[in-house]
Design a protein around this nucleic acid. Structure first.
Lengths: 182, 182
DNA sequence: CTGTCTATGTAGCGATTGCTACAACGCCAG
DNA sequence: CTGGCGTTGTAGCAATCGCTACATAGACAG
């Protein structure tokens, strides 16, 4: 079999798969290299140092996240905000999203702490998600921009509460808001 | 000067101060010990191993967080949900909360990843915050329990968006929700 | 053929990791 | 006085960390 040439681009998918499974915190060069079928020596050679490797990796992950979002998006718009919210929450409950979400909180934590590259990647993902959400707002919505931001705030809050075992709290809150029907 | 005896209880405040400044990710025994004026040797002696040290530390942090919440709570109740939300958001913007929030995202990430002790601590803090929020709901509120959960979801969403540089998005969303006045 | 440039393997550096073996200290019971 | 018990210091372990020096191999230009 022909061996593909190593480069940033060919390495990034395997690296992304590794951090999706094992997280960013414990991501050290040798395990990352093993996952990509190469050596720590070559990771440094191609990326210069670990910091830019992680930054590049986060950028790549932001890209594939956007692509996944586009793929998951059906062409049909919801008729109401309630339907829009319910559809997105259902998306977040899919098993394929679970690994992404776990990694997401690593990125949020890194962003809050100011680690290089984290905030840019997190911001890019949120910007993309916001644009997607705006496009998903009902056609007759009186304030699609504001509504999308409102839904976004609720969604992220619900995700966070779920991450700490308070999913039920978020669910009850959404019910009380009238945006979720029983 | 009399040296205070070392124990879990006397060590935890110094350890908490250290992780508040430097985070949980890079918290290793020797720096922790230095911050507490002792040695890694003694940390293991008193806590058994690092895992239970971190778990105990998270429990302690959850406690001081609750105490800080109680201290910040004025006896007067807000008259409206809007006032309640505004007051809490203002609380979250205080500089003293900044270090706490950075650490908080570490805890959320650990909880999402299933690290031992993280979910319990995060859940405890959220439970406490929810109880506090319920007590803060206006006296004539038609649904204090649901309203508190609704506000909580919005608040946590706003905090998360702020952590990734989308504070403006959350602000506009809250304005659109009608819960925040200009 | 020769030189140069890119890509890669091998080996190792000094630092740090969580943790432990061993000895010594002070205390209090007998 | 003695012996055990709880506490602490010193030293060190094997493993891992990010990174580098050095040699080598192949491709390609002159």
């Amino acid at each position: 079999m022909p061996t593909v040439p190593l480069s940033r681009e060919t390495l990034l998918p395997a690296l992304a798969a590794h951090v999706l499974e094992h997280g960013l915190g414990g991501a050290s060069l040798r395990p990352l290299a093993r996952a990509a079928g190469t050596s720590d020596r070559m990771l440094i050679y191609h990326f210069g140092n670990k910091e830019t490797l992680i930054a590049d990796l986060l950028g790549y992950i932001a890209d594939i996240y956007s692509a996944a979002l586009d793929a998951a998006l059906g062409p049909q718009r919801p008729q109401t905000r309630q339907e829009c919210l319910a559809r997105i929450l259902a998306e977040g409950r899919k098993p394929a999203m679970a690994a992404f979400l776990v990694l997401w909180w690593d990125i949020v934590a890194g962003s809050a702490r100011g680690l290089p590259g984290y905030r840019e990647a997190a911001q890019a993902m949120m910007t993309r998600q916001l644009a997607w959400l705006e496009g998903q707002m009902p056609e007759d919505d009186p304030d699609p921009a504001g509504g999308a931001r409102y839904l976004m705030t609720l969604i992220e809050g619900a995700l966070m509460l779920s991450a700490v075992g308070h999913g039920e709290t978020a669910h009850e809150g959404l019910l009380a808001s009238g945006l979720l029907r029983l």
